[in-house]
């Protein structure tokens, strides 16, 4: 099947138009001169200028970034450990409960997670702030990390680890020198996923943040509740740009690596 039928072409065209047109409109109108966001009044970057001077947004962005870095790093460590336990540890007491606790947060409505964590923090008298958001984000994003990492671990040839042990590694060395380098791509994408989830989260952060720590989604949400604003368009454009560059760069890197591997394999085959 080398060519697409007209039906498939139409599906793809309409589908991608539906996915991308709203964002394209958003980006175009972030450069609108007018305060009225639905009327085009000429090109301008003034909203970006105003955005940079908006201290409240900058503070919120800084909080969000710190929360995302801390929580995703913590979630990656915990999630990788959890994946390793799930795939490699065999039977242990409460294994079913453990795997249930890994998978349940993936589909749990955010309002419930947020509410329950808030009630916990109040119950133990923890002041709400950056720390509580980090704890909350770590909890739900470690589950995503562990799903990503365990899907890689399942396809991992266990004899590699056994070979390392056979050659004199301790289990910890075998993990560090053999397992980790091989599952590294999955761990990295797990980290990126956790990072994005944290940057993105509104509901859980709203429950677990205090007056001292407002994240960017909370700030955006309270702004857009009042309607469309060009400043938010500008902010959205910046966020879309960062993500697009990141995703394209990541896919180019993996594609390059795959192509290099294929070339090397072909070259090796020729020398036979």
């Amino acid at each position: 099947m080398n060519r697409l039928s007209w039906f498939n072409t139409v599906s793809l065209t309409l589908g991608f138009a539906f996915l991308y047109i709203p964002m394209v409109i958003l980006i175009i109108f972030s450069f609108n001169e007018s305060k009225l966001v639905t009327v085009w009044a000429g090109f301008s970057t003034k909203w970006y200028g105003e955005l940079i001077q908006n201290q409240a947004f900058l503070d919120a962005a800084w909080v969000t970034l710190r929360v995302a870095v801390f929580s995703s790093t913590l979630a990656t460590i915990l999630g990788t450990a959890a994946a390793y336990v799930l795939v490699r540890s065999g039977r242990f007491f409460g294994r079913t409960l453990f795997s249930g606790m890994i998978y349940a947060p993936l589909v749990m409505p955010e309002v419930i997670t947020g509410l329950s964590l808030l009630l916990l923090f109040i119950g133990i008298g923890l002041d709400r702030g950056i720390l509580t958001i980090v704890l909350a984000h770590t909890t739900f994003s470690m589950c995503f990390v562990s799903v990503v990492v365990s899907s890689r671990l399942v396809t991992f040839d266990q004899s590699l680890e056994e070979a390392a042990l056979d050659l004199g590694c301790s289990p910890a060395q075998a993990f560090r020198l053999v397992t980790l380098p091989i599952i590294a791509p999955a761990v990295i994408s797990g980290w990126l996923l956790a990072f994005t989830l944290s940057l993105d989260d509104l509901v859980i952060a709203s429950f677990t943040s205090g007056p001292s720590a407002t994240t960017l989604p909370i700030k955006i949400f309270s702004a857009v509740r009042l309607g469309v604003s060009p400043e938010i368009n500008a902010l959205s454009t910046l966020m879309i740009a960062v993500v697009t560059v990141g995703v394209i760069a990541a896919s180019l890197v993996t594609k390059r690596a795959m192509m290099r591997q294929r070339q090397d394999e072909q070259a090796a085959a020729r020398t036979e």
């Binding site: 996915l19 991308y20 709203p22 964002m23 409109i25 958003l26 109108f29 966001v37 639905t38 994005t196 940057l199 993105d200 509104l202 989604p217 955006i220 949400f221 857009v224 309607g227 469309v228 938010i232 368009n233 959205s236 966020m239 879309i240 993500v243 697009t244 990141g246 995703v247």
Partner: peptide, 15 residues
């Protein structure tokens, strides 16, 4: 689109 902010994607439809 999945990697871009959920909030922003919903917001885009408001306009």
């Amino acid at each position: 689109p999945f990697w871009t902010s959920f909030l922003i994607r919903v917001y885009a439809w408001m306009g």
